[in-house]
Design a protein around this nucleic acid. Structure first.
Lengths: 208, 208
DNA sequence: AGTGATTTGAGTCGTTCGACCTATCGATCT
DNA sequence: AGATCGATAGGTCGAACGACTCAAATCACT
């Protein structure tokens, strides 16, 4: 029988297109959600086999939704969809319990294959998924920040000053500045503005 | 007869879905392009009635492609598609010669209506298009910067320091700082990083 | 004619930033 | 066991930044 999928994406146009693409490949889309709250509600209501979820949602983070789903329905595989090969989010998504991670410029056939695989119970370690992840990770270079550095940069991007970042991370302003210095090196930036912009371009951090 | 459309979007998945959505509404998709160069080539080759183009493309800007198309094929209406209601890009797109501007969270029916309208020769002044533009412009408030202030902020966002901005605009660094000060006031920012981020959110400037 | 916004320019003052250097501690890798 | 890396923290120093106030010229709209 056909795999029953719940679509989560904030753009109605994308959802509609995705639904038609999937249904043309004999995948049954049982519901659509435009935000995280609707997604959580519909999962409980419709009990899909797989959730296909975009990372960027209006109300909450796709990663946050995935985390909640993983808690409430550990058996339900979540496939994360994203625009860009976004190393930071890949890691977070996997940690949150996503079963797979797909970039939006793969073909419909590829995503169908991934959906079928995770529906069959395969994990992120399956060859095809590893390939997808590699493809995602390959574009965008390497230049990866450490977890702490990402935190610092994200807070800066949210408008915090060095001192505020320090307070929120329970470290001294000095340490914050040190982290920033190594962020500048890794991102080839000379100041916080450029660092934030680079982080945005590389998908290391997100605009909130 | 059906309207013949050329799809331009860098994500294969989105293109595929869009094609199916449009064809379900009796719109004929004659071709797909994943980047600006392919778009220009296919327009010459396929002579579509309408081009449906995403703003973000890998090789060149959707706006830049539109500008070239407007030069080479003044009669060909271009409908710009975007993720966000982005006032800056709307203005640029219209200036570049786009016939319409649609946000990706409208329904398929709406975009079909827009495509049919522009195919019929209507311009951006048609009621439906004005409505679409209003919807796009509504989100994000007003808080508009002056032309000069936008220039300054855009250059800052491109990584220029105060002195570099001054040099590129042929003004003194002091004046640049004064512009920045009033930008901070208008955007409720306290430093350049926050100002750039606010500008990005409000669509006043663009990530390049 | 006058009001207001924009653009340009300037000064001062205290704060913050970023570059460069050193150092300790723990985890991970070889 | 030794090496490497990340996170923590400290210091110095000059440059840049942002807040505040002021002023003149231009242009548009009334």
């Amino acid at each position: 029988m056909a795999t029953r999928v719940l679509l989560v994406d904030d753009h109605a146009l994308v959802r509609d297109g995705l639904r038609r693409s999937l249904e043309a490949h004999k995948i049954h889309v049982v519901g659509e959600a435009g935000d995280g709250a609707a997604a959580l509600r519909l999962v409980a209501e419709l009990d899909p086999d797989v959730v296909l979820m975009d990372v960027s949602l209006p109300d909450m983070d796709g990663v946050a939704v995935t985390k909640q789903l993983a808690g409430a329905h550990p058996e339900l595989p979540v496939v994360m969809l994203t625009m860009y090969g976004d190393q930071a989010t890949i890691g977070e998504a996997i940690a949150a319990g996503a079963a797979a991670y797909v970039v939006k410029d793969c073909t419909t056939a590829e995503i169908v294959a991934v959906i079928d695989e995770v529906a069959a119970g395969e994990t992120a370690l399956s060859p095809a998924l590893a390939q997808t992840m590699l493809r995602a990770a390959r574009r965008g270079g390497e230049a990866i920040l450490s977890a702490r550095e990402r935190e610092v940069l994200q807070l800066i991007a949210e408008g915090s000053s060095t001192t505020e970042v320090a307070a929120r991370l329970y470290i001294t302003p000095k340490t914050t500045k040190n982290h920033l210095a190594s962020i500048y090196q890794k991102l080839e930036a000379t100041d916080r503005t450029q660092a934030v912009l680079q982080g945005l371009r590389k998908g290391i951090i997100r605009l909130r």
